[in-house]
Every structure is written in structure tokens, then in C-alpha cells.
Amino acid sequence: MSIRVIKNEFYMDSTISLALFRNVENAKEVRQNVMNGTFEAALLKPSMICDPFQVIVAANRAIHLNRQNKMITKNVHSEILFCLSPTKNISDSFRKFGLADNETSVMVVVADDIDGSTMSAICKCVKGELSDAQDVIHLTETKLIQKIYKIPDEELVVSKLLDSIVSRISSKDVLTL
């Protein structure tokens, strides 16, 4: 039951912090704190995440786009949400992958929180149980993910769901579903 901090292998001065909360009672308040700038983070629906690696790939992509001054959205955290989505529709990305007010679980992603102060503030704000990020697999809605990413059952015979998703995230600029 911990916060996972990953060093970005391409940008050594960059980190990605992940935290999964379950039985959240105040999703609306947490979301409002992000929207009004109290703290910067990406708040994700765990049902749309099949593995933390999916989030790490999207976050690395967002950080890279930020460093290249090629982001589509306003900040790196909203870019993480956008990078998770297989489409180029920003509002659709937020609706499908972002936290809704009635959610009871949330995956929090914070980029470049070197001293841990942002994640610490979020942990104090969230009224819920901190779980291991890997536990997100128990909250995954596989069929919904397949539908959104347009992954047919036949593809899963030769590829894992995570591999198919990562391929789509990585090739978003080239191919839009």
C-alpha cells in the first residue's frame, strides 16, 4: 500500500508518481481541487486502466510532448489524460478517462513531484484507502476498454490487452481510431 514513484528514463530530472485510492468518499472535492489549481495532478478512472504501465506510457508521452512544446492541452497532467485516449477529442478523453464526481476509486498521477509535496497534499485531501497501484487490475472494465480502444477479441488471441493499448497510445499521432 504505497505510492509508486518512477524515474523517467528519458528525462532523468523527471518523475511520475502513481497512487490508487479505493472507497473514496469525496471524489467531487478532489476533482474540484485539481480544477481550481489547488494541486496539479491527473485523476483517472481506474476502470479504464488495465495496468499501471498503461499510465506510465501515457505520462512519459505527455512529459515528452511538454519538453518538445508540442502539447495539445494546457498542462502536462491534462495531457496525460489526452494521451491515454485513442482519439484526438480532448473533451471525450476527459469524459472517458478522467475522474467523475460519483467515482469511488481514483488513480492519481503526478508528474515531476520531486519532493513529494503534491502527492502528500492529495493524500491528505482524499477520503479513501490508499492501495497498491498494481491493484488497479481488480477495478478494470475489460470489455469497456476493448470497446473504447476498438480491440476485437481476435486481437487478444495474439496480443495481451496491455500490449494492444500501449500500441495505440504510442501510435496516436499516426493513427486515430
Rank of each mutant, 00 (worst) to 15 (best):
A19S: 11
R67G: 04
S159K: 07
I165L: 02
D13T: 05
N23H: 13
I63L: 06
I151H: 00
S78D: 15
G98P: 00
C123T: 15
K143N: 13
V24H: 04
R95H: 15
P86N: 05
E103K: 03
D51G: 09
G37N: 03
D135W: 09
D163W: 01
S91Y: 12
S167M: 05
L161T: 06
R61E: 12
S85K: 03
S85Q: 02
D113R: 02
S91A: 14
S14R: 13
C50G: 07
K28T: 15
D92K: 07
N66R: 11
N102K: 11
K172H: 06
M107P: 09
M35G: 07
F10L: 15
T87I: 01
R61V: 09
T73R: 12
D153M: 02
V109N: 05
R168E: 03
V110A: 10
S17A: 08
N75C: 05
F97Y: 14
I169W: 05
I90S: 14
S117L: 12
K124V: 09
T140N: 14
F82G: 01
S85D: 00
V136E: 06
K70P: 08
R31G: 12
S120A: 12
K150V: 02
A111P: 04
T176R: 09
F82V: 00
D92C: 10
D173N: 12
A111R: 03
E29Y: 13
L43S: 04
M71F: 09
K88I: 08
V34P: 00
K7G: 08
V110Y: 06
S47F: 10
F10R: 11
V110W: 07
D115Y: 12
S117W: 09
N102C: 07
D112Q: 08
I169C: 01
G37D: 00
R67H: 07
F39Q: 07
V174P: 01
K70W: 05
I49F: 02
K124N: 15
H64S: 15
A121Q: 15
S47Y: 14
T140G: 08
I148S: 02
M1V: 10
S131M: 13
L99R: 10
F21S: 04
Y149G: 00
P152T: 00
F94W: 10
V55N: 13
M48T: 03
C123I: 11
D153T: 01
F10P: 10
I63V: 03
V34K: 00
I63K: 04
D115M: 04
S85P: 01
T118R: 13
K172Q: 13
T142L: 09
V30A: 08
Y149W: 02
K143V: 11
N26I: 06
R4H: 13
I114H: 03
E40Y: 15
A27V: 03
I169H: 01
N75M: 06
